[in-house]
Simulated assay, not measured.
Amino acid sequence: MSDEDIPPPPILSLTKADIENLSVPELEERVDALAAEIERVKAVIAQKQDSKSAAEAVFGNS
């Protein structure tokens, strides 16, 4: 299996996508979708940080 057979990580497909031929409404829709995804990721990060903090409070910080 060569490197060409391995699909890029999903984040790269977002950042490397050809967007030059998209219309303004399509670009605005993309921005809205990406903003929603950013908020979703931030929520998961906050949840994980809360879980880590709770575990450290119980078991101590190592």
Rank of each mutant, 00 (worst) to 15 (best):
M1C: 06
S2T: 12
D3N: 08
D3R: 11
D3G: 08
E4N: 10
P8E: 14
P9L: 12
P9F: 11
P9R: 13
P9S: 12
P9D: 13
P10C: 05
I11K: 04
L12E: 09
S13L: 14
S13M: 11
S13W: 03
S13R: 09
S13P: 02
L14R: 01
L14G: 02
T15P: 02
T15Y: 02
T15D: 01
K16E: 09
A17P: 00
A17V: 07
A17N: 02
D18N: 14
D18I: 08
I19A: 12
I19H: 05
E20P: 00
E20V: 05
E20A: 13
S23V: 00
S23Q: 04
V24I: 15
P25Y: 05
P25H: 04
E26V: 01
L27A: 12
E29F: 05
E29V: 05
V31M: 10
D32W: 03
D32Q: 14
L34H: 06
A35L: 07
A35W: 01
E37M: 11
E37F: 08
E37T: 09
I38C: 02
I38F: 04
E39V: 10
E39I: 07
E39S: 11
V41Q: 11
K42H: 10
K42T: 13
K42M: 12
A43P: 02
V44Q: 09
V44T: 12
V44M: 04
V44L: 15
V44W: 02
Q49V: 08
D50S: 15
S51V: 03
S51E: 14
S51G: 06
K52V: 14
K52A: 15
A54W: 08
A54P: 00
A55S: 10
A55E: 10
A55P: 00
E56M: 12
V58K: 14
V58F: 04
F59Q: 08
F59W: 12
G60P: 01
N61G: 00
N61C: 00
S62I: 09
